[in-house]
């Protein structure tokens, strides 16, 4: 198999593009770089490409995983170097890669750093109180329905990394994966419910790492 597993980052310049946009950008960059990507057979051939987990609009990352299949094996370093030349600086950048036969690993949790700009003064005790809640009910939208969940059950770690009067930096580990996924923005909405001093002007989450199922 010529399956190449790539780890890439989605930078600040690409923060506001969605998952499908990232996929399109990837395929086009590979074509610009003349990387011999394998295409599916059939009426509507498309590049053989799959992603570990979609990353939403508004979130950056340094740990995204994509598998591409090549027509012929080229040295990994050559592919990374060439492709990165054809991606706008600060948007998407391939960090590393390896040929593999293993299936895409199953993701269980993800760690985020969330940078929040706040409207008004933040109160530390207010935020700390919100972080310690054992139950925060919140509406979670899925494709079919909106369901009420206790988000606290899906937050495995949450702490203040840094804060001043109107800036708050949180580190969280939450449930993630293709079956059940908590977006970092949802964690902030949940905190807003109890922390009255929290009125975000902007929320800038960054995915740091995945935690895989064993």
């Amino acid at each position: 198999m010529n399956k190449l597993r790539l780890v890439f980052e989605k930078g600040e310049a690409a923060r506001y593009i969605g998952h499908l946009d990232v996929m399109r950008t990837f395929v086009r960059a590979l074509r610009r770089a003349n990387v011999p990507v394998k295409y599916t057979e059939g009426f509507n051939p498309h590049a053989v490409l799959s992603f570990a987990l979609p990353l939403g609009v508004g979130t950056t990352s340094e740990c995204e995983i994509a598998d591409i299949t090549l027509k012929n094996k080229l040295p990994v370093s050559e592919i990374i170097e060439k492709t990165n030349l054809y991606l706008q600086e600060g948007s998407i950048k391939i960090l590393s890669g390896e040929y593999t036969d293993k299936p895409m690993p199953v993701i269980e949790k993800a760690e985020y750093i969330i940078d929040i700009k706040n409207d008004g003064l933040l109160s530390r005790s207010d935020i700390e109180n919100a972080l310690s809640k054992k139950e925060i009910l919140i509406d979670k939208k899925t494709k079919r329905q909106t369901k009420q969940i206790n988000i606290a059950e899906h937050i495995f770690q949450i702490r203040i990394l840094d804060m001043d009067d109107n800036r708050l930096k949180l580190q969280v580990i939450v449930s993630a994966g293709n079956t059940f996924n908590i977006k970092p923005q949802l964690v902030v909405s949940a905190l807003e419910k109890t922390a009255h001093s929290l009125n975000p002007l902007s929320i800038a989450p960054h995915r740091v790492r995945f935690i895989f199922a064993r």
Partner: peptide, 13 residues
Amino acid sequence: LDKVEKPARYTGG
């Protein structure tokens, strides 16, 4: 940008 539809309309790059 968090508050508008299709924010990439405005970001360029």
